[in-house]
Amino acid sequence: MTKKEAKMIDKDGVRADGRKPDELRPTKIEVGVLNNADGSAYIEQGKNKILAAVYGPHEVHPKHLALPHRSRLRCRYHMAPFSVDERKSPAPSRREVELSKVIREALEPSIFLEYYPRTSIDLFIEVLQAHGGTRCAGITVASLALADAGIPMRDLTAACAAGKVEGQLVLDLTDQEDKKGEADVPLAYMPNLDAVTLLQMDGQLTLEEFEKTISLSLEGCKQLYLLQKEALKVKYVAVKEDIEE
């Protein structure tokens, strides 16, 4: 062990990767990247690289899983073996199974599932490169993939974490900040409906800090939401501009 660990935040409040405490990682989103899926999207948030694909609504297999009153959303969050430093076994781990569940529950309220009874919507989130906050980035892309598939939704869902690192409240934690920091609060949010669909906390915060953390991640979600909307429109705007030239 080194005697003195490098500080995560310097005395001017600048983080290890040069960000301010309330700044998101640089984010790039693309919609409709896969031809064979009904809907798809890709996000790069800092060093995170995540692909999402949607199939459906279609018939449920096996048939007994079909629900008579609504569509079934099935979600698989999966990390590629090469997504982390040490090879990860491709078999779904306990963590991935749990994340699949919380992501599904974060997205379900945004979809009009009751429009398509006896069907299923299959969602695949593949983490190609992980660097902290993949569940949130996963929700952000998955929501876009659903919109790209033409599935009717109440709102897009954006997700983003905030937490406490070296006594400071910061937005959008990286892997190191998450591991060495004191607390991490992932949150998913539908901005137009002003509804939170996922809220977790790992670590300890005072009530006051907790409230501040939440308002920090809500701001982050709103910024991501704008990026999501732009990503959905950009394809069509490009065609239109081409013609008008």
Binding site: M153, L156, K233, Y236
Partner: peptide, 8 residues
């Protein structure tokens, strides 16, 4: 005009 899900 172009709109996305959730737009008022």
């Amino acid at each position: 005009q172009l709109v996305t899900p959730g737009d008022l």
